[in-house]
């Protein structure tokens, strides 16, 4: 039976261990947007023994790049929603094991190596509906800070202030369960069945 959880960042291991695939989460606190350029920069810094100007221990990261608008001398949030997560698969184990990220929020899920890291360290993947950014944005009060704006608006790291942001669906949990593994198998199987029906061959 799916249950609903209200969590605040920074997240502790026991917070995420309670979550099971299919549960709903409403998240409050700071959420960091992280896309292609920021992932690469963080990894480069890590390899040199350096740290980014923000701390991802216990953090929720969000695969997203917002529309932001300058209001006076401050950045205001227009809309933000999830981008396609599988392209960050190669960074999944790194951000979980080395940086202490406890929740990754995005769209489309991540791979088995990321799932393994989630199990061993205690982290989850939370999904939000792709394309539904204006509804998603209702969960945020705005920005606390921005880093690396020289990457451009989508690729900068924005610190979003979340307030009961959700519903986020637990799609990969810290007990080895991934909604996507099962789904991908079932879609391939359905394609095979369809082929038999359509062409009479497997």
């Amino acid at each position: 039976m799916a249950s609903t959880h209200y969590l605040s960042t920074p997240l502790k291991e026991e917070d995420v261990r309670r979550l099971r695939v299919g549960d709903e989460v409403y998240l409050s606190g700071i959420v960091y947007t992280l896309r292609d350029k920021a992932h690469r920069r963080i990894l480069e810094l890590f390899e040199k023994g350096e740290k980014p100007p923000f701390d991802l221990e216990g953090a929720a990261i969000f695969h997203a790049g917002p529309i932001a608008a300058k209001r006076g001398d401050k950045w205001g949030l227009v809309v933000v929603g999830p981008t396609i997560s599988p392209r960050f698969n190669r960074y999944g184990p790194f951000v979980i094991r080395e940086l202490g990220v406890r929740a990754i929020v995005g769209f489309g899920g991540m791979d088995e190596k990321t799932l393994e890291a989630m199990s061993s360290v205690g982290a989850v993947y939370l999904a939000y509906t792709g394309g539904a950014a204006s509804a998603c944005t209702k969960g945020f009060k705005g920005f606390r800070a921005v880093h690396w704006l020289e990457f451009g608006m989508p690729d900068a790291v924005w610190e979003l202030i979340a307030e009961n942001w959700g519903p986020l669906i637990v799609a990969m949990d810290s007990h080895g369960n991934s909604l996507y593994e099962e789904l991908r198998r079932s879609w391939s199987q359905k394609l095979e069945e369809l082929r038999k029906k359509l062409w009479g061959t497997g």
């Binding site: 917002p66 809309v79 394309g131 950014a133 204006s134 944005t137």
Partner: peptide, 8 residues
């Protein structure tokens, strides 16, 4: 609110 449906 006349805000975009999607950020992308």
């Amino acid at each position: 609110e006349k805000i975009p449906l999607c950020q992308a």
